[in-house]
Amino acid sequence: MSEKVIQKNKMVDFLNELLKAYKVFAPVKRDHIVSFDAIQSSGEMLLNYLNSRIPPKEIFFPRSEKMFEYIRDDLIEVKEVLPSEERKVLFGIRPCDAKAILLLDKVFDSPDYQDPYYLRKRKETIFVGMGCDRPQSTCFCTSLGGAPFSEEGLDLLFTNIGDRFVVKGITEEGETLLEKYEQVFERAKKSDLDDKLNVEKEAVNRIKSKIALEKIEKRLDKMFEDSFWDRIYQKCLGCAVCTYLCPTCHCFDITDETMDTSGERFRAWDSCQFALFTLQASGHNPRMSGKERVRQRIMHKFNYFVKNYGEIACVGCGRCIKNCPVNFDIRQILLELVS
């Protein structure tokens, strides 16, 4: 697939062109927090960022969304409320988060049941990745089969080489974009490609957290009853920061909202870390304490998900580590488990 170059001062032009044809989601900074949001003008996009605090999963799987509506007094139909299928570009997604979307696809687009709310938003989206030239100390994507410049799940990949980006078309969709907006791109010189390789190599070298996770699933098979969990869960507060900010966590709740005679059904993020998540109407709760709930989070990502979908449900983005109120560090847990 082809590689081009774009000067940084041409980025504005490129984004403006994209904005004419697509709804563009890009990293923006509000109140010191970086998140992905629909932008109206190219100037809103942040080019210099580590990663967003809330993962871009929220574009396809928002914190809460309406599923259908009905009239309570006169129940003759349930009116489906589906998101519109607009053409979107997700600009600036990091490779780890792109991989996370592929993992979410496995859940929401499983052979038995397809989730229309997720899929309608997901389908018409072009993924323009921004290679991760400055991995953070909490990043450990390479332990999970990812890489700062992994192309998995992307249509285009941008690599920052100083005053310009090398842009690689990965899929046909990506190539089409390169052709369609060829006026903003230049031919990539040999030196550009060499620079790109160097940036990539350097980025990989910057990742210091390395955990050998090949055997984690097998290891956890024997860990369910282990006293290990009694020890590690103690400091966990039981909030949902780790799961809500996780790019692969997908648990949700479903609820009805009523107003006068109209009713609506919503779904909203939920978390296995909440005590009430598994509480049954009878009062019985299979996951009684924080111990069971912390165990569930680790087991689900590194064992159950693997058994169901063949991959670990963690991409090593480090959000749960950076944002945990008590500095609960999943890397330490994993290191201990594999050692």
Binding site: P62, S64, E65, K66, V81, L82, P83, S84, M259, S262, E264, F266
Partner: peptide, 8 residues
């Protein structure tokens, strides 16, 4: 006042 949410 609680208002109906906009669809998506």
């Amino acid at each position: 006042v609680k208002r109906k949410a906009d669809p998506h």
